[in-house]
Simulated assay, not measured.
Amino acid sequence: MTEEIIIAGFGGQGVLSMGKILAYSGIMQNQEVSWMPSYGPEMRGGTANVTVILSDDRISSPVLKKFDTAIILNQQSMDKFVNEVKPGGTLLYDPNGITHHPERRDINIYRIPGAALAVEMGNPQTFNMIIMGGFLKIKPIVLLENVKKGLEKSLPERHHKLIPLNIQAIQKGSDSVETVHTV
């Protein structure tokens, strides 16, 4: 199994940390992992994306042109990456702020209202874990117990008290992902 993923959105949405947690979760499952972030100089509001590769085999290069899965969190990222999903691949997106919804018919498309659910949970910082939960429902490539270990590894110890809230957000996302189109 090899899964090549792009996670893209604005800085401040937890794009890079979602990728890091996913990568650590893969490490906890003894997978080969690549994590390659890309972001602008802005602290908040600039574009950010990360490519993550999880594989049972050695990874030859972290540089990708096409992706098995794209997790899209803003319109700019949708415009840039919607056509970079491999035919038969998967696109998961948060509709908040998306004005041009994906129309491809050769990929699986899922939607998750992560921003709205984070507000509903009373903590906007759970947004990225809600999205992660939706992704793991669609593609259970890492086990929840390994995601918990990934959270422990990637979060500073002073934030470990937030792990139960993050697990709750993952479950909320898993329960809330909606199918738009499947091939």
Rank of each mutant, 00 (worst) to 15 (best):
N83I: 03
T90A: 04
A70L: 00
N30C: 10
K149Q: 15
V85C: 09
G133R: 00
R105G: 05
G114P: 09
S176P: 14
G46Y: 13
A48G: 13
I131H: 04
I109M: 11
V50M: 08
G88F: 08
L22C: 09
F67D: 11
L64K: 10
Y110F: 15
I170N: 07
H101Q: 12
Y39L: 08
G173N: 10
P164T: 13
E152L: 06
E103A: 07
P113H: 05
E3C: 11
H100G: 01
A8D: 12
I72T: 14
L92Y: 03
L73R: 13
K86P: 05
P95G: 06
G46I: 10
P113C: 04
T69A: 06
S25Q: 08
V177R: 01
H181D: 02
G114L: 01
L54E: 06
N128W: 05
P164W: 12
L151G: 10
N128Y: 07
G114M: 00
L22S: 05
I138D: 01
K86F: 00
K65Q: 14
T51C: 08
F10Q: 15
I72V: 15
I167W: 03
F127I: 10
L162Q: 15
N123S: 12
M18P: 05
A8V: 13
G114F: 00
N108Q: 08
L54H: 15
V180F: 07
E157G: 03
V15H: 14
I130E: 14
N146Y: 09
A23D: 11
G14R: 13
G19V: 09
S77V: 00
A70N: 05
F127D: 02
L144T: 11
A118K: 01
S55V: 09
N74A: 04
G173A: 06
G114R: 02
S61E: 02
R111C: 09
K139S: 00
M28G: 12
M43K: 15
I163N: 06
L22N: 00
T126K: 05
K148M: 07
L155P: 11
I6M: 06
G45Q: 12
G14D: 14
G40S: 06
F127Y: 15
K66F: 04
T2F: 00
Q171T: 08
H181Q: 11
R105C: 02
L143F: 10
V82T: 14
G12N: 10
H100M: 08
M132G: 03
N83W: 06
S38H: 12
N108I: 01
E42R: 02
A23V: 04
K153R: 15
F127A: 01
I138G: 02
G122I: 03
F127R: 00
I131P: 09
F81L: 11
D57W: 02
A116T: 09
Q125A: 04
I163P: 03
P102T: 08
Q168N: 12
T99W: 10
T99H: 13
G9C: 08
N108C: 03
R105F: 00
M1W: 03
I27Y: 03
I107R: 15
M78I: 07
V147S: 15
E157A: 01
A115M: 09
L91N: 15
Q125P: 01
P62V: 02
N83Q: 14
V52C: 10
V15E: 15
G19E: 13
L54A: 11
M43W: 13
N96D: 09
S77L: 01
T47G: 15
K161S: 08
N128F: 04
K65F: 12
K153G: 07
L136N: 09
